[in-house]
Structure formats: structure tokens, C-alpha cells
Amino acid sequence: MTSLQTTIVLLSLMMVLVVACTLAQTKLGTFGAVGAYMRSPFVYWRPEGASYKIPIFPGGGLVGLLLLINLAAAQFLRLEVSWRKAGLWVVHLGLIMLFAGEFVTGFFQRESQMILPVGGTRGWMQDLHETELALIDGTDKDFDAVFAISEKRLARGGAIADARLPFVLKIGSYESIPAPVGADADSDDIRVMVSLEKDGRTFGPWTLDSNTGQVATFTDAGRGYAIELRPKRHYLPFALTLKKFIHETYPGTDIPKGFASRVRVFDAAGNTDREVLISMNNPLRYDGLSFYQASFAKEDTVSILQIVANPGRLIPYLACALVAAGLLLHFAMRFRPSGASR
């Protein structure tokens, strides 16, 4: 099969995947569908009730990789080096960059949220997809001691005994229910049953649910503890305080005109202490992270910021400029009035 034929087959496969992914979004939600069709090397089929899955179609990851290899091969092995093909060279280089950029994004992009009440300060952000089990010792007046167990560890079950943990944690059951259709959040509903043991005494068991977010409390040896399932927290070397949240509508309507959060950004060392306005289409970029005005809650008293870290975010910009310039060059030469053929 020639390289051109391979290209056509791969592009057609990609089209089938894009259609399937789009249709699947009504059932799986965007995050689920992209995971199943685009980011995975294969599209799997799981027979009813089976624990195994069978790959039935190449996934976006595989097709994309093959396209990239084929493109690079065609580019460097087949395509002649000549002025006539200069446009195509630039187009293909741009496309290689674009694919590479999407792989970088797939592997390195992290999305989190910060939920900021007016007047509140947060030095951490919460993961959109992952849950953690937090055991909080709130006895001390000035700080909480937090022990966090990741969702992955919870899924393995069994008991966790660690010298740093004041108790032995026993995981009775773990259940992950996929996010319902059309839900805003992409995170699954996690339910676990846990109990704690120390010196032969047992606390719990409690059944915790990440959706309801209930908190169980108990005391032991004069210390007060709370245990809960919550979105995984990532701590930041700086903090944000929400000074004001602005929600404008067009007069006489409910149509939103704009949302904006006025926040103070500061760090402990005092290197940064300033105020910024984060609004729709105007994010704050700070410390390799981008903060976007995503949503709001509780009658405009809580602002929700989306936080994205993507080291490859500038790659697509460059790639696209290359492809556009290349296409323009190629078509300009192709459709020159003198009728020079391609």
C-alpha cells in the first residue's frame, strides 16, 4: 500500500472515530467518549456482564500515531525536495507538530477547579476527575493534619497500615459508578465502605459517597477526626482570594452578559501580591497555570475557576500558522494564472 493510500485509509478511519465519538457523547458524556474513542489505542467492546474486553476497532491514539508515522515517512522519504512542493512541505511539518501537540496535551494537560466563595482564600485546587479519601485531624487550633488516600489505592481494597497513619484503614468495599448522562462534572460517583482500627478498637464502618460528600466524625484519645471522600486536592505555592464576583445580565432579561472575578494573587514569600480581574475570555496566566472564569454558584456568592496546566499549549498555535501558510503557498502556486500544474 502506498503512502497516499495509507493516508486516505487512516483519514477515513479517523472520520469514523470522530462520528462515533460525537454520537457517544450523548450517552457517555464528553470526557467518557473522548477516553473511549480518541485517547485510547483501541475501541473496545465489552460483552454483557463480562470482565474482559475485546478490541474491535483502532482507537484515536493508534490512528493518530500511524498518521503521524506515515506523514513523517512520506515527508522525509517520498516527497521530493523542490520549490513546487514547498507548500506541501510546510503543511506536513505543521501537521506533524499539531499531532505531536495533541499527544503532549493528552499526556501532560491537567485540569482542576478552584471553588472560591466571596472573601474566601484558597491555596489549593481540586481535581475534576479524581477523588481521594481524607482523614482530617482537626484538634490543633492552628492547623489540620490531613491524611489523604488516592482513589487508585482505594480501588485495590484491603488494609492500609502506615506508621504515619494514626489508624489501620480497612477498605470494606469500593464501587465506582460512571457519571450520569449529561452531567456537568465528569467525575464518577465513588462509594466506599471503610473502617479504622487501633489497639483492637474499631471505628466505623462508614459508607462514604463522593456525590453526597457527607462527613463522618469521631473522637479518639481526646483528638477529633473527620473522614470524607472529596475531590483530590493539589496544593499551590501561592493563594487566591476572591474580592468580588460580578455577574451582569442584559437589562430586562436573564441572558448573561458577563461574569468576572476580582481576585488577589499572593504568595507567602511576598514576591507576588496583586489584584487581577478574571473574566470570560480573559484568563489569568500565572506560574504555568491558566485560571479561567468557568462558572458560579450559590446566587453569585461563589465563583468557580477552571485551572489548566498544559506545557504544550503554544505548540498548536505555531503548527496552525505553518499549515495555513503552507496551504496558502501551495494553492497559490497551483492556481497561478499562468496555469503551472501542481
Binding site: 496535551t105 484568563p283 479561567y292 499549515v323
Partner: peptide
């Protein structure tokens, strides 16, 4: 691509596999 850049500028996702983008 311009749509992707807009998306990156306003919510940090160059490409979100949104149905219209697809």
C-alpha cells in the same frame, strides 16, 4: 484552528472534542 485558539483563550482547552468542533 481559530476555534481551538478561542477555546484555549477562554477555557484552556485547545481541543475539547465538542460535537461542533468534531
Amino acid at each position: 484552528i481559530l476555534g481551538g485558539i478561542w477555546a484555549d483563550q477562554s477555557w484552556g482547552r485547545f481541543w475539547g472534542w465538542d460535537p461542533k468542533e468534531n
